[in-house]
């Protein structure tokens, strides 16, 4: 029972990240018709917003390191700690959640520059061209990050207060073994709220209504005198923010390196296809579904029945779903057909 519940939580957690990236991908595909292979790189840039913000906060003064006697070595003490003592320490402690404030404008800007600067030139080109150029862009972005931050993962810590795990088992009167890291619970809550916010934005605002109308029939909306292109640019920025935030909050779970985006990108595409191209609801539910399935497939009991299932389950499910429902779970007629 505990084991199953734990794997459900693992799945929801991972699913949250998949869903956020897939949501952005679907938004971009639905509005601009672009297959954006640079979307994983946006997740990665988000994660490095957190890393850079932390670096900024821990900008340090060099102090002679007495522990090294072979040669002159220096260790670093952050200026914030020198100036403000414990307050400075506390600010550094909360660097990951605080970097959300930086990540939102940065990601919006990155998204808009990406769309205006490069991707809009490829609207009329084939999907193969779009994939090539966005994939190339992703590699360029990765190499830039690697140049400045190196290739090794850079650990980011969650605030001290949520560093441990929550004794869920004890609360529910189940076994003591049922514990789950606080930060992962926070991540789940966070991804659910971002998803809710995006849906509310699209459903409840006039801007959202126009965007939805544009996704449905771009030409007619244009004929009504609405500058749909500009709105779509903003949607691209929004999608960048969503996957950037997913990246920021994921850093305490997985120390980010320049390659972190690629690891999520492929899976997120499968999520989008399974959910149905162009369907926002489909992307979100497929994200959670595949996350949970992947976690269950990694259980020892299941792996001993079918060895290696943990590595192929997602693709297996994708094949089955596409055979049974060629448009994906919630795919609309006429999209990419």
């Amino acid at each position: 029972m505990d084991a199953i519940l734990l794997q459900v939580l693992n799945g929801l957690d991972k699913g949250g990240a998949y869903a956020l990236i897939a949501l952005g991908l679907t938004l971009i595909f639905g509005t601009l018709g672009i297959v954006n292979f640079a979307h994983g790189a946006l997740f990665m840039i988000g994660a490095f917003c957190a890393v850079s913000f932390n670096k900024l906060l821990t900008f340090s003064i060099k102090v002679k390191d007495e522990s090294i006697t072979f040669f002159d070595a220096y260790k670093e003490v952050p200026y914030l700690e020198v100036w403000w003592g414990d307050t400075g320490k506390a600010i550094i402690d909360y660097s990951v959640p605080l970097s959300i404030l930086i990540a939102i404008p940065v990601m919006l800007l990155v998204g808009i520059i990406m769309e205006r600067g490069l991707i809009r030139h490829f609207y009329k080109r084939t999907h193969a061209d779009q994939i090539l150029v966005t994939f190339g862009l992703a590699i360029v972005l990765q190499e830039i990050i690697k140049h400045f931050f190196g290739a090794n993962p850079i650990p980011q810590s969650a605030p001290e207060i949520v560093a441990g795990s929550a004794a869920i088992g004890t609360w529910l009167g189940l076994s003591d073994n049922l514990v789950y890291p606080w930060w992962r619970l926070i991540y789940l809550g966070f991804s659910l709220s971002v998803i809710a916010a995006v849906f509310a934005f699209l459903q409840l605002t006039t801007f959202g209504m126009v965007v939805r109308a544009g996704m449905h029939d771009r030409e007619t909306v244009g004929l009504l005198g609405i500058n749909i292109e500009r709105r779509f640019t903003i949607v691209f920025g929004l999608a960048a923010v969503v996957s950037g935030l997913a990246g920021v909050m994921y850093t305490p779970i997985l120390p980010p390196d320049y390659h972190i985006g690629m690891e999520f990108l492929v899976l997120s595409f499968v999520v989008v296809v399974v959910g149905g191209m162009g369907s926002l609801g489909g992307a979100v539910s497929a994200g959670f579904l595949l996350g949970i399935l992947q976690s269950f497939a990694s259980m020892n009991e299941i792996k001993s029945l079918i060895p290696g299932i943990d590595q192929i389950i997602i693709y297996l499910v994708a094949v089955v779903i596409l055979l049974v429902r060629p448009r994906g779970l919630m795919g609309r007629k006429g999209v990419m057909e």
């Binding site: 505990d2 957690d13 992947q294 976690s295 990694s298």
Partner: peptide
């Protein structure tokens, strides 16, 4: 003895079974 794929990234699904 549990084998994990090289570069798995998130190991949570391999770590939780250790608890029990």
């Amino acid at each position: 003895k549990v084998r994990t794929p090289l570069g798995a990234g998130d190991f949570s699904q391999y770590i939780t079974p250790v608890l029990n």
